[in-house]
Amino acid sequence: MAQEVRGVIARGKGDPVRVETIFVPDPGPGEAVVKIQACGVCHTDLHYREGGINDEFPFLLGHEAAGVVESVGDGVTEVAPGDFVILNWRAVCGQCRACLRGRPWYCFNTHNAKQKMTLTDGTELSPALGIGAFAEKTLVAAGQCTKVDPAAAPAAAGLLGCGVMAGLGAAINTGQVGRGDTVAVIGCGGVGNAAVAGARLAGAAKIIAVDLSDAKLEQAKALGATHTVNSSSTDAVEAIRSLTGGFGADVVIDAVGRPETYRQAFYARDLAGTVVLVGVPTPEMKLELPLLDVFGRGGALKSSWYGDCLPSRDFPMLIDLYLQGRLDLDAFVSETIALDGVEEAFHRMEKGEVLRSVVLL
């Protein structure tokens, strides 16, 4: 029997989102219904509203979420009703070429719920990243539910579902930051500051945060940056080099995703260093670099998908670190809002006023 709940809907490109009644079906085989407790407002949700992902409107937005499993369908063994879970958009299949080669964090065939949630007139909804968690309840594939310690605050835990995990993973998993490394992070929004926190967790000796905003740089210092560079008045590449003995950083993370910032990252790394792109470019962006420089500087140029995370491995570990006081996830929660506050939260996010607004249900 389908349940009626409230959810945040984007009906058309650029239209303000609004709260509407939706129908959530009972879970089928391999599916779960989750009662949402908290969901972060991510740039990806705004991209959906603006038609930047695809045009499969209407969208049920929201994906950085934590909640409690309410019911499961046939064949579900990984979670049970009552489990506190973080939702993820990488439910690994176990059968694709990446999974079979022992690299499930690259799974090329992740799956979502087979059934569709709908509006009251029967119109099928496209859930953001296969989740759709700006809602009182949502239907997902059971593999999208990762069980974690219920002592964690939902508002903080849910952020591991996307942006914070992307930044932490860019440093720890993709960049493979090691003890004593020098790290630079360009762009200190939610993802960039999570990369700062990840570099600190990994034991980096020097962490250089770069941004145009002094307020964001102060947040980066609180999360582990040892040095800050305001690139509105200082050449970022020269500053990073001067702070690393003239060599450049071992790992440079571009959390902005623009050609200008990528070039900064490329030239701010040491010889044989690593560049990690975790900021998401737009389709029209082009990058031009001298091929001789790409060859001559050596090292690695990497892109980080979802922080190259494996939710079943990384989410419980990071929640444990949070509960031990070693990872301050609460610092990323700038404000908590109601379900009808998402449109205004988009505006604050665009102005750079928040790391994360979090919907509490």
Rank of each mutant, 00 (worst) to 15 (best):
G7D: 11
R18S: 05
D26T: 06
V34L: 03
C39D: 03
G40P: 11
G51V: 02
D55L: 06
F59D: 10
V76N: 03
D83Y: 03
C93P: 15
C96Q: 13
A98V: 07
G102Y: 14
N109S: 14
K114D: 10
K116E: 09
M117K: 10
L119G: 08
T120F: 09
T123F: 00
A133H: 05
L139Q: 10
A142D: 10
G143T: 10
K147A: 10
V148K: 07
A157T: 11
N173D: 09
G178Q: 15
G180L: 02
V185K: 12
C188Q: 13
G189T: 11
G190Q: 04
A194M: 03
G198H: 06
D214F: 04
K221Q: 14
A222W: 01
A225K: 09
A225C: 12
A225S: 14
T228K: 11
T234K: 07
G248L: 06
G248E: 05
E260R: 09
R263S: 04
Y267K: 08
V278Y: 04
V278K: 00
P283S: 00
P283Q: 04
P283A: 02
M285W: 04
P290C: 11
D293C: 10
F295V: 14
L310N: 15
R313Y: 13
A331I: 02
E335V: 07
E335Y: 01
D340L: 01
G341A: 06
S357A: 08
